[in-house]
């Protein structure tokens, strides 16, 4: 598999504060990555370093195997970090024309990408007249101008209204479906869960986890069930070593698995004990639950 970005023991110190601490991970072509972490965990700093706007304190990073200089590599990258930054007095089209010049991309891409983000009819409006949602979409159009090998998005839905959030998410899904590698930094977990296949979890600048989303916590999932004989069911489950933990909440019993078990096996097990279920669901921990489990300690 082709490596797009590899980061090796990257560290950034701001005075006493270590914003990024010995961080290492690699980005492979074709995957959608999420960088997760609470505010101030070093997500933006890490992206700033690989994007040539923040100086590293130590460690290394390499774009595309290290054969090109960082600024040349960035011509093959599309990135937006934090707020969209454009010249307020210029029209959308002129702003994109400037980006084309910097990246060395032909101008006919402008119209194409403005259509992708749905701004083609507003291309002659000045950037400062745009709403935040439109600005963010223009930023995405700008990042897509060069048909990038990788698209880097830092909190792309921050500050948007629900409609704007929805539009941006749809756009990201659409781009991911086209096979573009994406690196998405966010503290909104459902955002990452919806689009990412891989995650890197950061806390206080340290890497807690990197890998596939569903392998984040060693877990076999859990059952949610309801039945009329609640106490009996709980007693049965507690005596069974297959379950590590039983929770009761609002008449809903949650049984966490110690080892793999299918729902039909479970159903039969309960039926054999004389318990008839009125509700049964097998689930895996959501990203949020996994994330909280991971960042707890």
């Amino acid at each position: 598999m082709e490596t797009i970005l590899s980061i090796d023991r990257l560290t950034k110190k701001f005075g006493y504060l270590t914003a990024v601490n010995e961080l290492s991970f690699t980005i492979e072509k074709g995957n959608v990555y999420g960088i997760l972490g609470p505010n101030g965990s070093g997500k933006s700093t890490t992206l700033g370093i690989v994007l040539n706007v923040v100086n590293k304190s130590s460690g290394n990073f390499q774009w595309f195997g290290g054969n090109v200089s960082t600024h040349d590599a960035l011509k093959k990258v599309g990135a937006i970090i934090e707020r969209p930054n454009f010249y307020p007095y210029m029209t959308a089209e002129k702003n994109l024309e400037l980006v084309c010049k910097i990246k060395g991309v032909p101008h006919h891409k402008i119209q194409e990408k403005l259509e992708v983000v749905g701004l083609a009819d507003r291309k002659d409006s000045k950037f400062r007249t745009y709403s935040l949602g439109m600005k963010q979409r223009l930023a995405i159009a700008s990042a897509l101008l060069n048909d990038p090998e990788i698209l880097i998005l830092d909190e792309p839905t921050n500050g948007l209204d629900p409609q704007g959030i929805h539009q941006i998410r749809q756009l990201i899904k659409q781009i991911a479906a086209d096979g573009t590698t994406i690196l998405l930094a966010s503290h909104l977990l459902d955002e990452v869960e919806k689009v990412c296949s891989h995650v890197v979890v950061l806390q206080k600048g340290k890497k807690l986890y990197s890998g596939q989303v569903d392998e984040m916590v060693a877990s076999h999932g859990f059952f949610e069930l309801r039945c009329s004989e609640q106490e009996k069911a709980v007693a049965v489950l507690q005596n069974n070593p297959t379950f590590r933990e039983i929770k009761e909440e609002n008449n809903l019993i949650t049984a966490f698995l110690n080892e793999p078990m299918e729902a039909d096996t479970f159903n039969r097990l309960m039926f054999d004990q004389g318990i008839v279920l009125s509700h049964l669901v097998k689930r895996k921990e959501s990203l949020e639950e996994q994330f909280l489990a991971l960042t707890e300690n």
Partner: peptide, 17 residues
């Protein structure tokens, strides 16, 4: 003030350029 210097660098302009 427009932070476009940041965007220029991210878009692939080198600092010297």
């Amino acid at each position: 003030s427009n932070k476009t210097i940041k965007q220029n660098l991210i878009d692939g302009l080198s600092k010297w350029e």
